[in-house]
Amino acid sequence: MHATDLVNNNMPQESKPTPTQQKAEPPSLSDFEQQEEVAWGSLATIIDVIYKKNGRHYALKVLNKGQLAKKKAIASVHAERNALIALGKKSYHHPGVVRLHHCFHDPDHLYFVLDLATNGDLKMLVQKLGSISLNCARYYTAQVVDAVQFLHESGISHRDIKPENVLLDDEMRIKLADFGCAYVGANMETPRTNTFVGTAAYISPELLARSEVNPRSPDIWAIGCLLYFFLFGSSPFMAATDYLTMKRVRALDYSIPDVCDTGAADMIRALLVLDPLERLGVPPKSSSKAIRQHPFFVGSEEKTTSGAGAGTSPALWLVVDWERLWTAPPPPIEVGPYRARPKEVPADDLWKGFESLHLVND
């Protein structure tokens, strides 16, 4: 029972709550000083705002009610709100999950006030570099694993884990965002029929088949796709269209380049398994502990005995120190070996020849 419940139960029947006991009024748009837009999409715009009451920066997610109704996305907004509120009720807030601070609306828009991630997302980072180093991939995959497992323990399946939904804060640590496809349930062990949700390049085969499986399994599959993306700059199932991509997912049609680290390749294969019951980390045959103890994270016997893992600064992240995952410094961002950073074309070259174009008169 909450403290406020105790107060209300002990009050005389005719008593009225004092002003301090009354529920605080939600903020409105006028309580925020708008800065610049930091992201936008077909349904939402994200604006950097300053909350006038405390001077702090937040991300204001603005959704147009008319657009939501037109695109039949109202259920998605409710799913996100329910998941974030459920997480907000927990006594512990995970550092790797975006936090909902306020939620309000006006006649035309819905507003979510969220943590502001100042360094973009992992899709932007990887695409800028082409790929990221093995140690960077290990570190960020471990952070995603830890955050996802926290969600599952909290009765929430994200179901749309992808690079653009993994934000980077001012210290270059992750924050999972966008819970529009989330499932919130009291029991994550009971199989349930899956709804077709998610993004083609990261969607699991059981979501495509709408089969009855453990709610955790789609997120575990997506982690395998993420690791592949970190190392090679593309989804393992990417094709010219979503239809062809999903066809490749159903057929488990992907290949791992020969340059891939042995531990990383083994991890990808253990997560990208068609049968979710055979997938690493999915109960009852596996567990969350099994993922955390995989050699890709904790090091192989050969690596440990050679000294590459033991006695090395965790900042290098040759192995994952799970106890210091959110406190030790992240690894320096380095380009991966598979693809070099794309060459930047000088701005003048982009317009070369433009002045020589001639229109042909009819």
Results as ranks from 00 to 15, higher is better:
P332Q: 13
A315F: 10
F104H: 05
E153V: 08
A310P: 02
G41F: 01
I85M: 05
V319G: 01
A315K: 15
H102P: 10
R81P: 10
L272W: 11
A308R: 07
K53T: 09
A44E: 07
S217V: 07
T304G: 14
G88K: 00
K289H: 12
L277H: 14
L60K: 08
D253S: 03
T262H: 15
G96I: 00
K343V: 12
E164R: 11
N187L: 15
V249Q: 00
N8D: 11
S30E: 14
L87V: 01
K23T: 15
G224H: 08
L227N: 10
H109W: 06
D348F: 08
A79N: 01
D5K: 04
S157A: 04
M267Q: 09
Y338S: 09
R192G: 10
M1C: 03
N194K: 12
D170L: 14
A270V: 03
K53F: 08
Y139V: 01
Y140S: 07
E189Y: 15
E153T: 08
S91W: 03
P218Y: 03
S217T: 10
T199I: 06
A315L: 11
V148F: 02
L271I: 05
V145A: 11
A209T: 14
E355Y: 14
A59Y: 02
I132P: 07
D258G: 13
K52C: 06
V319P: 00
D275L: 01
A315H: 12
P257Y: 00
N165V: 00
G55C: 06
T20F: 05
G185A: 12
S286G: 02
V249S: 00
I220Q: 14
T193D: 14
H294L: 04
K162E: 00
Q13Y: 09
S42L: 12
P284G: 02
L114Q: 05
R138M: 05
P205F: 03
G66Q: 11
S91F: 02
Y202I: 01
L29H: 10
S154N: 06
D321V: 08
W317T: 07
R210Y: 11
D219W: 01
